[in-house]
Computed example of a mutant assay.
Amino acid sequence: MEYISGRYEILDNNDKIVCGKLYKARDLENDVLVYIQLLKDNKYISKSFLPNLIDESTMLNEINSYNIAKILDLGIHLSHEERYFYVVNEYFCGIELKKIIKGNYIDLNSIVTITKKILKTLDTGYSQGLYHGSLSEENIFVDENYNIKIYDYCITKANKGVNVRKDNCIAFLSPHQLNINYTDKESDFFTLGIILFDAIFKKMPFGIGKDEAEMLKLIDKGIDWNTVGINNENIALVNIVKKLTRRTEKYNGINEILIDLSNFMYVKADIEENEEIDEFDEEIDTQINKPKNKIFQKVMLLALTVTMLITVITQFR
């Protein structure tokens, strides 16, 4: 077992701890479950990060949103001459969105349901002047009823808008985060587009670069839409992804995205209804034609019998 600060016992770790990953742990002092993560001190992290995060977490907890994970404790953890920051969050009985996507447990309706909840949670933060800045499939948790809890709020803002570069996060960063370390709500929109693409097609839209420069080149190259299955059912959702991830003519706010998602659901429902009607019509047509087919068969059998009788009588004359 691994212990952080002598107080938090990590429960779901069988190997070396990965920095930035949320681990289920037990708070030995209060005997409750929590989530804890370690952030390795690196060149991207400001010297004022920890005091800033203490201030930001206080304001975050005052928002008191069910969908935003509260920060319960913060501190410094030293291990093998390495310096880490630890962040303790409230526990939520769900699983990472990444596991749902990679496990193929999600359909288009569920994708839209979860996306709407993510957007409404982001809107709650924006109303308080708080962007996220480090969204990924690993810090969005979903339960069996598709309720969500978003973690890592305030981490980027406490670091003066610079993403702290968690392990494997580079593929979720917006171009201006990669290029000039600037974060705003458009960064969240871009990241949401990446998550949506992966949820629909089970692959990252731009791939994963080894560093910022390569990742920017991949983004500039664009998404190869010929390699994915676009059809009548998902095309409206694909258009939302395109608008979230492009450089110009982007969404200006949450409501615009929610409207497009609602329109997608309306069109999808209409398509499904028409398909059900077509199937019903085919079934009715089959039922109507079935008696006709039986009558036709009887007539043909009678005609064949008469023909055979005439042939036999003719031969005996």
Rank of each mutant, 00 (worst) to 15 (best):
D184Y: 07
N147Y: 10
E137R: 11
K149E: 06
M300F: 02
K292M: 09
Y8W: 01
K203M: 12
K16N: 11
Y35N: 05
E214M: 08
K40S: 06
M1E: 12
V18L: 12
F264P: 04
L74W: 05
S46D: 11
T311R: 14
C93S: 15
H176E: 15
I194K: 04
I254H: 05
L173H: 03
L301T: 11
F264I: 04
C154E: 12
L78F: 09
L130S: 01
I155Q: 02
D12M: 06
I71Y: 01
V32E: 15
I111L: 01
L122M: 08
I254R: 07
D12V: 06
N64H: 12
G94E: 03
G229A: 10
Y8T: 00
Y44N: 13
N30C: 05
L196G: 02
V306S: 12
Y91F: 15
G222P: 05
D107F: 10
N13S: 15
I71N: 03
F264N: 10
K185R: 13
I4C: 04
S134F: 04
T115R: 06
L50Q: 04
E186Y: 13
L28I: 09
K120M: 09
E29L: 09
N67I: 00
E62V: 07
S57G: 06
I140V: 12
E137F: 05
Q177R: 05
K21S: 08
S48Q: 13
L218Q: 10
K298T: 07
N14Q: 08
N89I: 01
N274G: 06
G103I: 07
K120L: 14
Q177L: 02
N263W: 07
Q315R: 11
T191I: 02
N168W: 08
D73S: 07
L258D: 04
V267T: 14
N231H: 13
K99C: 00
K298N: 14
G129S: 09
I118D: 01
L196H: 01
Y126M: 04
N168K: 12
T305P: 00
W225V: 02
H77S: 06
K47G: 14
Y105H: 13
E137I: 07
K294D: 13
K70T: 08
E256G: 08
E273F: 14
I100S: 03
E9H: 07
I155V: 08
E212F: 11
K117P: 09
A269K: 15
G94S: 06
R83T: 13
M308T: 15
N163H: 04
Q315S: 13
K268A: 13
L108G: 03
T314R: 11
Q287S: 09
L72R: 07
L304V: 11
E256T: 05
S174K: 03
I106E: 05
E137P: 02
T248D: 12
N181M: 10
G133F: 03
I259S: 10
D220P: 00
